Amino acid sequence: MDVADRPLWRQALKIGGAFVATASLFLGAALFLDGSALRVLLGITPELDVPYIGTRQEMIDKMLDLAEVGPDDRVVDLGTGDGRILISAAKDRGATGLGVDLDPAMIAAAKANAVRAGVSDRVSFAQADLFETSLEGADVVTMYLLPSVNLRLRPRLLEQLEPGSRIVSHAFDMGDWRPDATDTIGSSRSYLWIVPADVDGQWQFQIDGDEFPVIFAQRFQDVEGTAQVGSETIMLQPELEGDRLRFSLPIDGVTRNFEGIVHGDRIVPVGTTDWFARRSGE
Rank of each mutant, 00 (worst) to 15 (best):
P104Q: 09
V100N: 01
R39W: 05
I107W: 05
P71C: 11
F32R: 15
T80D: 03
M106S: 11
A18V: 11
V69K: 08
L102H: 04
D34I: 04
E68W: 15
G83K: 04
P104W: 10
S36D: 05
G43S: 05
T96Q: 11
L13E: 11
L102D: 05
R56E: 06
L42S: 12
P71F: 11
D82V: 07
D92W: 06
L48C: 05
E47M: 09
D101G: 06
L86C: 06
G99T: 03
V75D: 03
F32S: 14
G97Q: 07
A89M: 04
A12V: 07
G97T: 03
G83M: 05
E47W: 08
D73V: 01
V100L: 05
T96F: 00
L41V: 10
D72P: 00
E68Y: 15
A29D: 07
G54R: 09
D103R: 07
G43V: 08
G16A: 15
L86E: 01
G43W: 00
E58T: 07
I60V: 15
G35S: 13
D82S: 12
G17V: 13
A67H: 03
G35A: 12
G17P: 04
E58K: 08
R93D: 00
A18L: 14
I85L: 11
G17D: 15
A18N: 14
L31A: 07
I15C: 12
Q57G: 00
L48Y: 06
P104I: 14
E47K: 10
L78H: 01
A95E: 04
L98T: 07
R84A: 08
T96R: 14
I15F: 04
L38K: 06
F19K: 10
L42C: 13
A67R: 03
A109N: 04
I15V: 11
G70K: 14
T22H: 02
V75K: 05
I60R: 03
I44G: 03
A37E: 10
R84K: 14
G17S: 13
T80H: 08
L66V: 08
G97W: 01
A23Q: 08
F19W: 09
R74S: 14
S36R: 06
A21W: 09
I87R: 09
D77Y: 02
V76T: 12
D34A: 13
L102F: 10
V75P: 05
D82E: 08
A21K: 02
V40A: 15
D73W: 06
M59A: 04
D72C: 00
